[in-house]
Nucleic acid binder design. Sequence first.
DNA 1: CTGAAAGCGCTTACAG
DNA 2: CTGAAAGCGCTTACAG
Lengths: 322, 322
Amino acid sequence: MATLEQVAFRAGCSLATASRVLNRNGPASDLMVRKVRRAAAELGYHSAGRLGRRPVVGVLIPSITNPVFASSLSSIQNRMLVAGHGVLIAQSNYDPAREADAVAALLNDRPTGLILTVCDPSTSQALLARLPPTVLLNNLPTAQFPAAVTADNRGAGREITAFLIGMGHRRILFLSGNFAASDRAHLRYRGYLDAMAESGLTALDVMQIPFVNGFDQLDLGMPMNSLAPTAIIASNDLLALGVIGALKREGLSVPGDVSVAGFDGIAIGRLIDPPLTTIEMPDASMGATAASLLLDMAENAAPARHLDVAYTLRRGGTVRAI
Amino acid sequence: MATLEQVAFRAGCSLATASRVLNRNGPASDLMVRKVRRAAAELGYHSAGRLGRRPVVGVLIPSITNPVFASSLSSIQNRMLVAGHGVLIAQSNYDPAREADAVAALLNDRPTGLILTVCDPSTSQALLARLPPTVLLNNLPTAQFPAAVTADNRGAGREITAFLIGMGHRRILFLSGNFAASDRAHLRYRGYLDAMAESGLTALDVMQIPFVNGFDQLDLGMPMNSLAPTAIIASNDLLALGVIGALKREGLSVPGDVSVAGFDGIAIGRLIDPPLTTIEMPDASMGATAASLLLDMAENAAPARHLDVAYTLRRGGTVRAI
DNA sequence: CTGAAAGCGCTTACAG
DNA sequence: CTGAAAGCGCTTACAG
């Protein structure tokens, strides 16, 4: 186990300076910061203190009960276990205002690094503080936080819409959770707009549905007349399942009367009959990638990177050609 | 922030003895152990060390991606946040052999306490070591670990079976995941046997389905002739959804040809059409209860208790009277 | 089983 | 911005 003294010696500075750099209190020149960080990384120093606590990383996600984030979290934990790091969790419950507090709580555990999924990285208050090495997961990188692991949500929106258009659909409705709670939903919607414009079709007004502990009470209240959409794209699979349930309650069949598609590729979508047509997002693989990137940054002082992981279109049975 | 010195003073012993008691190394008389623990609890002492790390608790569950455990974990985290504790996660992946390692990893973080869901508490190697205050969640208490939060799984198995019998079913099949991976499934099965015996019916041979990353490839391979079951009880909702999908692929309708019921009450079960008939388990409430019990034990030296939380039968549309 | 004391690893005024 | 040094909170041989 490396001590601070060894780090200071290797960095060619005093114990005091090394301590200040690693704890981000007190002043330190850029040069010293680099030297000390590098020495600490080379020695595998963890400021675990006398007590020998295992190093930990903090993970912030909107909700553990959403299978998308549960999948990421699970593979983050598996990757971190191998690396000898504990994983601490925090939830924002899709509320941007809670993100800063959640991250502050995580910082109380002196994590080696953070993996964060926020509602909107450009406005999140959680990203203002000076943080340990941080990887954004499912959010696009910012100037201050250039390390990110994403899938191309806009491209995915474009692709699923183009797929529906290719199946003969023209009146396609985009149904979304609240954009303020998910920049992913917003990006998917923009992809929808792209594809509609490219085909010279008129985009319908987006419907935003506030997420209130699940979508099982969903009431579309849509006039299902000749002007009604022939296809609905839901901004995520849970919402898509809610839509299918709501349509059935209104006496409409899927895909007989209306086609439905989603995003995410949650496991449940394969169980229902017919299986859900969706864009399968590589959540588990993205989680593992984010974990590896964070470890590389924190332990080897590797540079921040933006990694994009490929999605795939899964043709289920909830879309039919017309 | 209380120091060890204050604890030692209050306990009327030396720093050295207080240190030994709280770290469970070195010898200490029973009297001293009690005195020091009590003083530490009264002062709210946390051996966070100079670094002022927040105290943490460790949670072991079979899998984060199972919505049942995700629900418990989420409410544990919410409860612990209020109490100022971090939450560390570990997964066994339903493998009893991995439980001991997972708990050992958690212990590296010096948790204030543990909340554990194991495959079988009577045989789990994770429960042999000397552990900090520990609450079993979803497992029955043992002599050595008398703190537990459970629902009455046997009673639930009895009730759902009795409900099906009341609906006129006689040939009722119990379909289960692997008993070795879940004592809950086994208890539910025993409840099924109870109810069948009480009504003088012959229990059918239980089918055990190994869980391999989801049930979407499920093949029942059942001869659906006149001797086939009229109702199937799946040991959990995910399996029930897999069964419904498999039946539909074989051209059978639910509940037209076969009735299906499950256990757990996962959110998805309300979204499908018809909604799943199931025993709704209070997973979120159980998680919060386990968290509160653990805090009470760790911070107030409260005695270990066994708390049972009530379940409810949710009548969906997947069971019909015959 | 217990305590006095040495000493570890770290932080933090203080001086420059 | 940096370092020498005091000192905090804890652990751990050692002696009894």
